[in-house]
């Protein structure tokens, strides 16, 4: 969509799960690109394949067909050793929905956040601690929390620590898998605001969510995934005001808004029938 070389390009990617008779195709010919600094939403229902697609991008599942390139480097061609080296650079980072699972419960927030730097190596302890402190400032976490364990801070604070850790290696792409679904309103607003402020020419964000309504306002573009296929990719305002695919229409029409949606009931029923018949 732009003349700038894409940061990430996904071309004709197929992903399968299982073996023999149980083999199932999770992703069918996925095609999309993310430009440097862009904020993109990857939206789909449970089982649509959005997390599988994200896992393929970070090399946790291997595509059967197609190509995934980061800065024109073909990631699908990397050997396991090259993948490990690529991961150590930390240019692609991943934030999970539940920070209680992604942060080691027995490590202080400082040690958890510092870990990517320890793995990458080349810095002294003091330099690392200094970087961790600065990162805490960026995500608006109080320095007194550095010595706490994940279980001793709130859900919002944990998610901010997870984001601080992801940002520490100065990634060019940050993948966020339902980063605010587990939080209450006040924390959701704060985390979204924080991420909105972080997005810039240096870091692109890929937001994965089942709910377009919860992340629409932060995204430039939206990719809609339905039953393993990308059914629509467009600018967020076009997706919302002029959705083309029946599933996208239902997705937009199902997002709860502050204007009462009761009058849309028959319209939603027609879309459900249309999708059910397909």
């Amino acid at each position: 969509m732009t003349d700038i070389a894409p940061l990430l390009s996904v071309e004709g990617v197929d992903v399968h799960y299982g073996r023999g008779a149980r083999r199932k195709q999770a992703i069918h010919a996925a095609d999309f690109a993310i430009a440097p600094g862009e904020v993109v939403g990857l939206i789909g229902e449970t089982g649509s394949g959005k997390s599988t697609l994200a896992r393929a991008i970070i090399g946790l599942v291997r595509p059967e067909a197609g190509r995934i390139a980061f800065h024109e480097e073909d990631l699908t061609a990397l050997t396991p050793a090259k993948w490990r080296a690529f991961r150590r650079t930390g240019v692609i980072q991943y934030v999970f929905q539940d920070p209680l699972r992604s942060l080691d419960p027995d490590m202080t927030l400082h040690d958890s956040v510092a870990e990517p730097l320890l793995i990458r190596g080349g810095l002294t302890r003091a330099q690392i601690t200094e970087k961790v402190r600065r990162q805490f400032g960026k995500v608006l976490l109080d320095e007194t929390l550095l010595s706490r364990l994940p279980g001793q801070v709130s859900g919002g604070q944990r998610q901010r620590a997870a984001i601080a850790r992801a940002l520490l290696t100065e990634p060019r792409l940050l993948i966020l898998d339902e980063p605010v679904s587990a939080l209450d309103s006040a924390n959701r607003v704060q985390i979204l605001e924080l991420l909105h402020a972080l997005a810039g020419p240096d870091v692109a964000l890929l937001f994965i969510s089942h709910d377009l309504g919860s992340v629409a306002g932060i995204t430039d573009r939206v990719i809609v995934l339905y039953r393993g296929r990308i059914v629509e990719v467009d600018r967020t305002d076009s997706i919302i005001n002029r959705p083309a695919h029946p599933y996208t229409k239902l997705l937009v029409g199902s997002a709860p808004t502050l204007t009462a949606g009761g009058s849309d009931r028959q319209w939603r029923d027609r879309l459900r029938a249309e999708l059910g018949a397909a």
Binding site: S185, V189, L192, A216, G217, I240, L258
Partner: peptide, 13 residues
């Protein structure tokens, strides 16, 4: 309400 106005669909509709 702010959450919806800033990050929801509302600003596009």
């Amino acid at each position: 309400l702010e959450e919806h106005h800033r990050f929801g669909l509302e600003r596009f509709l």
